[in-house]
């Protein structure tokens, strides 16, 4: 069965959705991502949908599920590269994609995840400092 590759970059996982998704592929991606977040301890998941010509409620639900599972595993989900026509259509469809952060492109998405990583490093540092006081 086809699977969508998941790349690791720094503390983040990157997925580029390039094909017209169907059910089995979407389910496989959810499973693979969950396993990979758990095994790598990634703190961010970047999903590039710039190749998608539409996002329907099925894809919307997949993105929602991925974000929900990531959250439980303490990782942020950022969806990047949504085409303008897709964004306009989503609003009329009624998809809200709550709990999902979006960014214009991969660079900005990575910056969002990196700022979160830095935040958690700062927290760790100040916690250490407090202990040493």
């Amino acid at each position: 069965m086809d699977r969508i590759p998941i790349l690791k970059l720094g503390g983040a996982l990157i997925v580029t959705i390039q094909v017209d998704m169907h059910d089995r592929l979407a389910l496989a991606l959810e499973e693979d991502l969950t396993a990979k977040i758990a095994s790598t301890g990634a703190r961010g998941v970047l999903i590039d949908i710039s190749a998608l010509e539409i996002v329907d409620s099925f894809i919307g639900r997949m993105l929602d599920n991925i974000a929900a599972v990531s959250r439980v595993l303490d990782a942020d989900t950022v969806v990047v590269g949504m085409r303008p026509a897709v964004a306009i259509t989503l609003v009329e469809l009624g998809l809200e994609l709550t709990g999902i952060k979006t960014a214009l492109n991969i660079e900005r998405g990575m910056a969002l995840i990196r700022s979160r990583l830095d935040e958690s490093k700062d927290e760790a540092r100040s916690a250490r400092a407090r202990r040493e006081d």
Binding site: I54, A85, T89
Partner: peptide, 17 residues
Amino acid sequence: SLVDQTKIVTAASELAR
């Protein structure tokens, strides 16, 4: 238009599913 194409294709996807 591209937006209208996207709308009708999205609607079709919902109904086909």
